[in-house]
Each structure stands twice: as structure tokens, then as C-alpha cells.
Simulated assay, not measured.
Amino acid sequence: MLKTPLRLAVAAVCTLLASGSAQAHFQLAYTPEVNITKAGDHAVKLIFWHPFENGHVMDMGEPLEFYAVHRGEKIDLKSTLSPMTFKGSENSAAAYDGTLTLKRSGDYVMVVVPEPYYEESEDIYIQQITKSYVNRNEIPTDWMDAQGLKTEILPLNRPTNIVAGSTFTGRVLSEGKPAAGVEIEIEYMAAEPDMANNQPQEPTASPMPGGAIVAISDDNGYFTFGVPKAGFWGFAALGSGPDKEYQDKELSQDAVLWVRAYDVK
């Protein structure tokens, strides 16, 4: 496990910037509840979307990999996938239903390695290697560990129970090494998916003025964000992966991390 330096509080505090992009692409690996007590099967939605704007949905190809890590063991979930159509507020697009089976207590780190998506408007490919977390019985086992992905965001706060109004700190890794100066787009899941109807629920927030919320990783790959609201927050480290080209075109290989924040009651 990577240790946080004592100077983190100073060095990792990032400035929020306005990005030129009005909409941020975000790969979802979504299940409504992330803190669960009972064993059993839980539905997962894999959607490539603009969840803050409740906007355009992009077609997903069949994921290259979909698995969970529990107590260091890799559990293949790709066989649970079935194609579905997700109907956003602007359009419909290809997405996937999956199943996560919880057995023993502890963390289940879901990992999605999607097929690169061709973004015609920019003439580039985008591949968002995504992690999200489910915990059974409040026992921490895996959330603090890197998963050895080409690129990933390592959480420094437990990602299944962030306190709304506190801060979240992550560390951007590329091939296991800290990635400095990476642009990180930050997205709120304003409209969570309706699991039964494959469409968004009513949005609970509106996008910020000035474009996407952006942070920059420091010299050691750290960034910190003040989490203002309960719900699901996504972080996308743009172009942080080592692969820069796909099918003779530019590739943005991004690391995506989802966390869940709660109000203190």
C-alpha cells in the first residue's frame, strides 16, 4: 500500500479550474447500494454517459474485462454481462447489465476495462479503465490497495463512506507509478440509473457553471477535492494511461474512480 506523505495536506490541495469541455464522458459501474449486509446477487449497470448533465449516452462495445477483486482474489464477472439499451434524456445507447455476487464480508473492487470508444467530434479514442466499490458488513479488506491496472486512481479515503462536506484524496497511478500534472475531471451523478427501467431517475442537481470541474495531480500524483454533497462522485484522470494510440488514432486512456458520500445525520 502506498503511504501518504505528511505534507499531503499542503501539497495535494488542488485548484478547481474550468475546463473547456462542457460535458465529461464517464464510464459507470453502478449499483445503487455500496454498503450491504446480506450475501447474494446484486445488479450492476455498465453505462458510458454524461451523468452530471443527465445528457448524451455513448454506445458501449463489449467490455474487454469486467471483474471484482475480493481479499486479493480476482473474480471474473464478464460471463454475467448481457446487452441492454439505456435511455438517457437525449438519446438511447448500448450498455450492459451485470451481476456482482457477494459471499464473504469485505470489499469488492469492481473493475471495468472497456473497449476503446471512438469520439467522432474529436477524432480520438477514449478508454476509461474504471473502479467502483461495494462493501459487505463494514469490514475493510481491499479498498486501499492498487489493482495493478495500466492506470488507476488509488483512494486515500475509504470510498464507500465519504462524509459529505469533508474531503476526498486520491493518487493517480500510471503503470503503478505516481502520475504528476494529470487533469482530473470531477463529476456528480446527478441522475442515478433506474435499475428496473434502464433510464435515469429524476436529477437531484444541476451542472456547475463554467464547464467541467477539474483538478490537477501534484508532483506525487495526489489530488484532493472537497465533497460538497451526498451521492456518487466520479473522478476521471484524463490520458493518464501509458497507451496513447489505438487503430492509428490518438487514444485517451483514462483512470476512473467512483466513490459514495453520505450526509451525517
Results as ranks from 00 to 15, higher is better:
186 I>P: 00
214 V>F: 10
22 A>I: 02
200 P>C: 09
81 L>Q: 02
160 T>K: 01
198 N>S: 12
231 G>W: 03
188 Y>S: 04
20 G>K: 12
80 T>W: 02
222 Y>L: 12
64 L>W: 08
73 E>Y: 04
175 E>F: 01
138 E>H: 13
225 F>G: 05
225 F>L: 12
175 E>C: 04
25 H>E: 13
116 P>S: 06
181 G>F: 06
29 A>M: 04
62 E>D: 12
205 A>L: 11
136 R>D: 09
21 S>E: 14
88 G>W: 04
82 S>N: 11
38 K>E: 15
145 D>H: 13
42 H>I: 09
227 V>P: 05
37 T>N: 14
76 D>L: 02
133 Y>T: 00
144 M>K: 10
190 A>S: 15
119 E>T: 02
51 P>M: 07
161 N>Y: 13
263 D>F: 04
162 I>P: 06
188 Y>D: 05
97 D>F: 01
78 K>G: 06
98 G>K: 03
17 L>A: 13
75 I>S: 03
205 A>V: 05
124 I>C: 07
138 E>A: 14
105 S>T: 11
101 T>Q: 09
195 M>P: 06
69 V>N: 02
50 H>R: 12
90 E>Y: 09
71 R>G: 11
141 T>M: 07
158 R>A: 08
5 P>D: 07
134 V>P: 06
136 R>K: 15
59 D>I: 08
135 N>V: 12
76 D>V: 04
123 D>Q: 15
240 S>G: 05
214 V>N: 08
93 A>I: 05
60 M>N: 09
86 F>L: 03
183 E>G: 10
82 S>E: 14
212 A>V: 13
177 K>I: 00
221 G>W: 01
81 L>D: 05
261 A>Y: 04
151 T>C: 13
102 L>W: 05
40 G>M: 09
237 A>P: 05
254 D>V: 03
209 P>G: 11
83 P>L: 08
21 S>A: 15
120 E>L: 07
60 M>T: 04
15 T>L: 13
153 I>Y: 00
245 E>A: 14
243 D>E: 15
189 M>S: 10
101 T>M: 06
101 T>D: 00
243 D>K: 13
106 G>K: 10
88 G>A: 09
261 A>W: 02
81 L>F: 08
237 A>S: 09
34 V>H: 07
136 R>M: 10
83 P>Q: 11
158 R>K: 14
54 N>Q: 13
207 P>I: 09
40 G>L: 09
88 G>H: 03
31 T>W: 04
42 H>W: 07
78 K>D: 08
204 T>A: 10
40 G>C: 08
154 L>A: 08
192 E>C: 04
211 G>M: 10
157 N>E: 13
75 I>Y: 06
50 H>V: 11
128 Q>E: 14
31 T>I: 05
62 E>M: 15
20 G>Q: 11
107 D>I: 01
204 T>W: 05
